[in-house]
């Protein structure tokens, strides 16, 4: 009966391994070489690149910024996505129209929308400051003041990916059983108590999945930074992937960039695993 089980798993697994194994091993190998724009090829310099990255303040700064940005945007996306899902879950005029509309940003190409956003944020001829000025307010230095540039990038990420949370959470809401709500009403619970007693616990599983997936995707944040700020002003919006990109493809220090990448991967896998465990424990406790 179970003899055929490998027929299911193996094709996919083998294809993925076949595609991924060489690039992965190769990256690890390159990280021990001094491959650079003036020195193409694989020599052996042992751990020199890793020694160098330990002292690379820009790399660790970028990693810190990435953590803040990823966790920050995902939490905001989750909160907003949940709120929006609740809004269009119940009775609403033109409910289906809004459901479609709220999904749309996720469907658009990040790199292309970032280009549009860059013109939106343009401080002298862009529409955002145009609106503010029409209201008699001061223009805002969206992309040229460090904290605001950071916030602007986050805003674009939130615009792009809140729909993802919205979709998963709404699908979850739609499938919730009716009975607990009837019971809550009989108990005389208000909407807020009902939410925390019934809805939220029932949504725990899907919430964990949505948050984790978004964290994984958010940690790769790249296009918005690449297009809108190039990591500036100063290094205010430089995240790990962008920094690796600068070192690897702009500077063409392939050896060093590979060491950065390998370190990055290890850090990411470890921290995401920990986050997953913590989330599960928190939500599981909530449920009991």
């Amino acid at each position: 009966m179970y003899r055929q089980k490998h027929l299911f798993l193996l094709p996919g697994l083998l294809v993925l391994v076949a595609i991924i194994i060489f690039p992965l091993l190769f990256t690890i190998r390159v990280s021990f070489s001094s491959w650079d724009v003036f020195q193409p090829g694989l020599d052996w310099i042992a751990g020199a690149n890793y020694g160098r990255l330990l002292e690379d303040a820009r790399y660790w700064g970028a990693l810190g910024r990435l953590m803040i940005m990823a966790v920050g945007t995902v939490l905001i996306q989750y909160t907003l996505g949940f709120a929006l899902a609740l809004l269009v879950w119940g009775d609403l005029k033109a409910r289906r129209f809004f459901r479609v509309l709220f999904l749309v940003p996720m469907m658009t190409t990040p790199v292309i929308m970032s280009v549009i956003w860059r013109t939106v944020f343009h401080e002298s001829i862009g529409p955002l400051n145009g609106l503010l000025q029409a209201l008699g307010l001061q223009g805002v230095p969206w992309l040229s003041e460090p904290a605001l540039a950071f916030a602007s990038v986050m805003m674009v990420e939130i615009w792009q990916w809140t729909p993802f949370m919205f979709l998963l959470l709404l699908a979850g809401l739609v499938s919730l059983p009716r009975e607990p709500y009837l019971a809550a009403r009989i108990d005389g619970a208000g909407p807020i108590r009902t939410f925390f007693a019934v809805t939220f616990p029932a949504m725990a599983g899907i919430s964990i999945a949505a948050i984790l997936i978004r964290l994984i995707e958010a940690s790769k944040i790249m296009e918005s930074v690449y297009v809108m700020t190039s990591g500036g002003p100063g290094t205010a919006t430089e995240t790990s992937t962008y920094y690796i990109y600068i070192r690897g493809l702009r500077d063409f220090q392939l050896g060093y960039a590979s060491a950065l990448s390998v370190t990055y991967l290890v850090i990411m896998i470890i921290s995401l695993t920990i986050i997953a465990k913590v989330l599960v424990r928190l939500f599981v406790k909530d449920r009991t």
């Binding site: 724009v37 003036f38 500036g232 500077d251 063409f252």
Partner: peptide, 22 residues
């Protein structure tokens, strides 16, 4: 010179830091 990109990106990064007041 070889590696001009590296020289210029680190120059640009330094100048950007100064301009941003960092």
């Amino acid at each position: 010179v070889p590696g001009v990109g590296q020289f210029m990106t680190s120059l640009a990064a330094g100048v950007a830091e100064a301009v941003a007041g960092q």
